[in-house]
Nucleic acid binder design. Structure first.
Lengths: 190, 190
DNA sequence: GCTAGCATGTAAACGGTTACATGATTAG
DNA sequence: CTAATCATGTAACCGTTTACATGCTAGC
């Protein structure tokens, strides 16, 4: 997740760690300061994997800035991660929203639609949060004010998200069929 | 978070690990199977801390079941965690929703309201996800379809959550003032 | 004189995931 | 016979948090 953010922001432009941290903080719904203990090791890992290069530049402040730049391998890695998201990025809303921030980088609308469809499929599985002897409890049945709130809020979010997903998928498909992009072979909406 | 779930579900009734796992899976928006590698160590940690006891019972299946039961210390620990939630539980929506599932166990509505107020305060800080030279970008300004969607969805959720929080806080306060519960000393809505 | 912002990093501890290991029963 | 369900656990790995460590500049 951190890795995806790093790759995503560096895809737009080279940045130094401090800058990167601020963007990531902003993205994570702000105020989640992305601890240095996570960021710097992550940058080193990515560098070791050959996904980015570090250039030390004399910075504005007293400390020299390390500007990180994606390599070809790094760009490919980002696109791969966007095309084939990990399970969490389909399952967890926060992770999915972060994925969304960079999904526009994928050149092919069919790939974008495929990702949205995966999320939609996951969300369409009926999920209920509490059970009474095997039976799912609906929001209206809950006596507890907070559990009722929890279910109501979760349901509202789910509805809004699904509506957006359906509409956007439709738009992407319309754009694909109306344009030059031919339907990929074997694209039988699995 | 796992710990909170364990304490929360055991507060209602003694359960064995397998049972507990199913309830927790259901709560986490289902399909997140709560790996055994997390659950069993967590149970051992809680037992070592004196928050719960383990009784081995010959179970329905071939393996004997370990039934876990909260101790007084465990009940106190749960209530303490509910009364004074960790930063994540105020900051992260999923964590907060899980907290909500158990907030009804707190006996004092004033404590419940305090928790909701903390979340509301956090949410009222303006959070924007992207910046252009220091200026926050609004959803309408975004050219990227997915980033626009991301901001729109996040904003809708935020609005609904805040509305629920405000209303529930008001209800809790109304109940408190209309009833015997005296306003706690020093309750000057800091 | 102090705090906030700029700027970089390391080390220990903690908790979670993944994979491994076992084994009986029941339904398809 | 095979998969799913019940039922328990361990070990290695990995990434995150928290705390530590340093130091300059600008504004209050």
């Amino acid at each position: 997740m951190l890795t995806l953010c790093i790759l995503g922001f560096l895809y737009e432009e080279p940045l130094h760690a401090y800058d990167l941290r601020q963007r990531i903080s902003g993205l994570s719904g702000h105020i989640r300061p992305v601890s240095d203990g996570a960021l710097y090791p992550a940058l080193n890992r990515l560098q070791a994997a050959g996904h980015l290069t570090k250039h030390t530049e004399p910075g504005a402040g007293p400390t020299p800035r390390n500007v990180f730049r994606l390599t070809d391998s790094g760009r490919a890695e980002l696109l791969r991660r966007l095309r084939e998201p990990a399970e969490v990025e389909v399952t967890d809303r926060n992770s999915f929203l972060i994925l969304l921030a960079f999904l526009g980088f994928l050149p092919d609308p069919a790939d974008q639609a495929r990702v949205l469809r995966r999320r939609l499929e996951f969300m369409e599985q009926p999920a209920s949060y509490f059970y009474d002897r095997g039976r799912p409890l609906r929001a209206a049945d809950m006596t507890d004010r907070f559990r009722r709130g929890m279910l109501t809020l979760a349901a509202a979010t789910s509805r809004a998200d699904k509506a957006w997903l359906r509409q956007t998928i439709a738009e992407l498909e319309a754009a694909a069929s109306g344009q030059d992009t031919p339907p990929a072979p074997g694209d039988t909406t699995r």
